[in-house]
Simulated scan of single mutants.
Amino acid sequence: MLWVAFPSTSDHDLCKRAAVALEVNARTVNNWLNCHNDAPGPIVLKVLLIAGAEIVFQQIEGPK
């Protein structure tokens, strides 16, 4: 879900972008990405909302 919410070209870029948006440390995002820890519920909801919006915008924009 992180990849959908924060489209990026690398793990490092994704961690930096998600950390800013979710107000957490990039290392924390990296731990979630590598399944070392679970994100707390409120963070999961934020990611779901962002990912849902991203999917809607992709549908509006159409294929690239």
Rank of each mutant, 00 (worst) to 15 (best):
E54A: 14
V56L: 15
Q59H: 13
A18N: 02
F6N: 07
E61W: 06
L33H: 04
L48Y: 04
F6P: 07
L22E: 03
P40G: 05
G52T: 15
T28M: 04
W3H: 15
N25W: 03
A51F: 12
M1V: 05
V47N: 02
R27W: 04
T28I: 04
G62R: 07
F6K: 11
F57Y: 11
S8F: 07
V24F: 00
V29D: 07
D11F: 10
I50Y: 05
N37D: 11
I60C: 02
N30P: 03
A39S: 07
P42W: 00
A53C: 12
L22S: 01
V47E: 03
N34Y: 08
H12T: 13
L49H: 15
E23K: 06
V47T: 02
C35K: 13
V56A: 15
W3G: 14
A21N: 03
G41E: 05
V20S: 03
P42C: 00
P40T: 05
D38A: 11
G41C: 00
T28H: 03
N30E: 13
S8A: 15
A51M: 13
D38C: 08
A18D: 03
K46P: 01
F57C: 08
D11T: 12
S10C: 10
E61S: 11
V24Q: 00
S8I: 05
N31A: 05
A19K: 05
G41Q: 03
I43V: 14
V24H: 00
Q58T: 07
N37W: 09
L45W: 05
G62W: 08
T9E: 15
G62S: 09
C35M: 10
N37G: 03
D38H: 12
N31R: 09
C35I: 09
L33I: 06
R27Y: 05
E23V: 02
A5I: 08
L2C: 05
A5M: 11
E54D: 09
N25Q: 06
V56Q: 14
G52M: 14
R17F: 01
D11E: 15
W3S: 15
L22W: 02
P7C: 12
W32D: 01
D38Y: 09
T28P: 02
F57G: 04
A21S: 10
M1Q: 08
Q59V: 11
V44F: 01
E61C: 08
C15N: 12
L33M: 11
A53D: 14
N30Q: 13
C35A: 14
E61A: 12
V56E: 15
V29P: 07
S8L: 08
N34D: 09
A26E: 04
Q58G: 14
A53W: 14
Q59T: 10
A21L: 04
E61D: 13
V24T: 00
A18Y: 03
V56P: 05
R17C: 03
G41F: 01
N31V: 01
V24G: 00
N34C: 11
G52D: 14
